[in-house]
Design a binder for these strands. Sequence first.
DNA 1: AGTGTGATGTCCT
DNA 2: GGACATCACACTC
Length: 194
Amino acid sequence: MVTVPVPDLLRPAHLVGPALIGCVLQVGDVALRIVEVEAYEGPDDPASHAWRGPSARNATMFGPAGHLYVYHMHGHYCCNVVCGPAGTPHGVLIRGGEVLTGFEEARTRRPGVPDARLARGPGNLTRTLGITRADDGSPLLTQGRIRLLPGHVPAQVEAGPRVNVSRAYERPWRFTAAGSRGVSAFKAHPNARS
DNA sequence: AGTGTGATGTCCT
DNA sequence: GGACATCACACTC
């Protein structure tokens, strides 16, 4: 396998997204390989939280790249890697991963769940890693609790529409590692059904 | 102060 | 294919 560096996060989210597949996200002792992401491009993207401008929830998206944007929804947390220059609220949602290390701690957080499904789906992934809104704004590129690290190139990266977004659902901004068990099931939003 | 709404997960048939 | 638990936040009075 070929090593991939952490990508240049100053580029637009739809370019950073596929480059993050195969990279490693580590929180404490638990590390996982990223196998599913989605790009959100702020004011140019009606599906983005930042589409209508800054708010208390999305403030981290408007800050510098290389930090973690964490939000709450439906009783779960989801995390994004903030990218683009400061003031450009682009983000890449981390939707799925394969746990590499820290299985004991991960299993404690997700009792009764098979290892292959520990971090499948954005809410499950944050639960496995122990990420909450308290981690919003955390730096990813320094020697802190949460780190984004180089990984390995997957066999193939596939692109397709984003999961369960009500607007701009035709944009192929979901990126997955082909064949990985850490990739969640696709679900179209009702607006996107014919 | 009240209402509506999801970048979800899990269970159901 | 669909129901719904669940809650922080954005929006509108």
